[in-house]
Write a protein that binds this DNA or RNA. Structure first.
Lengths: 337, 337
DNA sequence: CGACCTGGTGTTATCGCTAACATCACCGGC
DNA sequence: GCCGGTGATGTTAGCGATAACACCAGGTCG
């Protein structure tokens, strides 16, 4: 039986088209100085042979790959998962393959190891989804010279960074509640070491300060519905609580449930706003008013920033922020009189 | 300013160690015929220069890459997301990089395009997460000869496939309810075109048949909590319903909530079992008895099957199944008398 | 004691591509 | 009508690894 012959190479295309392999290369790379007729002949030959350029050979001679490495945590949290998914799509559309290095915990060693694996692969650039402080710390170890963009990372660090404008979203959510007539707004917060959570606290506080509203204590939680439920049980018992801004939709779901169990109707007695706009948010009872981050936009900005670094070596505007959008549904109403 | 000189190559290591580059290659690839002393000298040189082999060069000469392509849907559903995450980890541990090609919808064209992108990259093999029938259909277009493993795909197709044993998990869940004393078990199902959902229906029915229990009509839903809630509202009104097996935990959550709103206590009045064991399941009220698929095991099997194909060209046992585990919590009790 | 193996090493060719330079026909301008 | 420019193409030289073969010392064996 005959062994399957090797994949067609550039010379095979060249032979079929009656040109040199270099001309084939020129056609492939859209060089200007190729006669139209020749270009067509070459393209026909490429199609006929189902020729695909060998990326390894190209990478070898150019010293560049079309690969982007992403370091992400091994979690299924909505925010990071959406971000990753959006980034893969954006990079794919730009002709880059995305290699994902998963990490169990966001600590220094794991992240350093994941970055090393990517460097071994000679990725063109690396994106790190670093939503909490331990992850951000780990980036100090990454040697300079590797194009690197942090997503969801520490806004106080000078590394190139793209984030959702958490503070702005939180500000708008809070202001929306105040505008509805609430005297003040309580806040159920995510984990303190997450930048997302910190930014949302900051925006919430700013909105209260702007109208000289009293600032109640932050109710600390993690990102889970369970912890939102616990926080909600507490808040439901306090009659002065008429408006709650939750750091994400799952927390809000927990609060919604606690309120409902205590007989406090949403939005009639208590208004609730979330953050993330998870797919189910519109099906909560009542449909949840929330803040929608534009993950696709974050992904695009990230890719742009990274490719800028890849080509220029340096970046002029290292930090970019994407404004989220308030999505009004049915969980906000004026306070009861 | 001096331009950063190029990365060290094998010859640089060779020069430093006083050997030929071929000897360096032998050390790197663990060839037997290298003197121990030489091996150590070479290793020291590698370390000193922080040398990393150029994968492009290796791929060029060997014709193989260390890349695995994965095609997955652009969704954040718990099952597929966990699977992807687990696979990335497993492949990473085995020294393979994983390139993810996201697809917006699981239709023929999108999947074919994603597969083509991976073939362009000359991945060693491709994994397709194809949880519903349209995705499985699309695989008919994939040319033979590319190592390919389907995860969560159509069990009736002859392609190499790894799945959770949905039927077994559903069987056990249902049997657990029957063993607790329930006369029959109702089922809230996922979308009919998903294999996961179909397998769970099948297992549920088998368990009922095995004990000659009456088989109530399937309550059809999608995967969302919202649809589970709607199904639950209906079931809660029917006093003869004492046990419900839900096709996933989110559905179960919706059912739980509907039951609670109607004053039917879980597990005292109605028992509920879910599927997936999402992280929050232990924090539902009551903590949910559910079926836990072993995503890590699925990932390992998948990788194994793929690498077998890569090396052998053919596979002997093309279909593998991973048994899930029943996790007993507090949502199951004997029926009320 | 010379032929032969064998473990350790070096030399050379090669993978498929792009960059750089070479070639050549043809053009316009003085 | 010769010169230099320019557009279209071909030729050659690597990129950095592995594979195949060559080589050489030292031991084994007939």
């Amino acid at each position: 039986m005959e062994k399957t012959s090797r994949d067609p190479a550039m010379t095979d295309v060249a032979r079929l088209a009656g040109v040199s392999h270099q001309t084939v290369s020129r056609v492939l790379n859209n060089h200007p100085n190729v006669r139209e007729q020749t270009r067509l002949r070459v393209k026909a030959a490429i199609k006929e042979l189902d020729y695909r350029p060998n990326r390894a050979a190209r990478a070898l001679v150019t010293g560049k790959t079309q690969l982007i490495g992403v370091v992400a945590q091994n979690s299924t949290l909505y925010g990071p998962a959406s971000l990753l998914s959006a980034f893969e799509e954006a990079a794919g559309a730009a002709g880059f393959a995305v290699s994902v290095g998963r990490v169990k915990v966001l600590d220094r060693d794991s992240i350093a190891a994941a970055v090393e694996r990517h460097r071994d692969q000679r990725v063109a650039g690396i994106v790190v989804i670093a939503p909490n402080s331990s992850a951000a710390d780990a980036l100090a170890d990454v040697p300079a010279g590797v194009p690197l963009v942090t997503v969801d990372g520490d806004p106080d660090r000078p590394t190139p960074l793209v984030t959702v404008d958490q503070a702005k979203g939180a500000f708008e959510a809070t202001k929306h509640l105040i505008d509805a007539g609430h005297e003040t707004v309580w806040h159920v917060s995510g984990p303190a070491d997450w930048f997302d959570a910190a930014g949302r606290v900051q925006g919430w506080r700013a909105a209260l300060d702007a109208t000289s509203a009293e600032v109640p204590p932050v109710v600390a939680a993690d990102w889970s519905a369970a912890s939102g439920y616990r926080a909600g049980q507490m808040l439901a018992r306090m009659p002065e609580v008429t408006a709650v801004f939750c750091s994400n939709d799952h927390l809000a779901l927990g609060v919604l449930r606690a309120m409902s169990e205590r007989g406090r109707r949403v939005p009639h007695d208590v208004s609730v706003v979330g953050f993330d706009d998870v797919p189910e948010a519109a099906y909560f009872i009542p449909p949840l008013t929330t803040v929608r981050p534009d993950f696709a936009a974050v992904a695009h900005e990230t890719l742009g920033l990274l490719l800028e670094q890849v080509s220029d070596g340096e970046t002029t505007r290292p930090q970019r922020t994407v404004a989220p959008m308030l999505v009004k549904r049915d969980s906000v109403a004026p306070p009861p009189r």
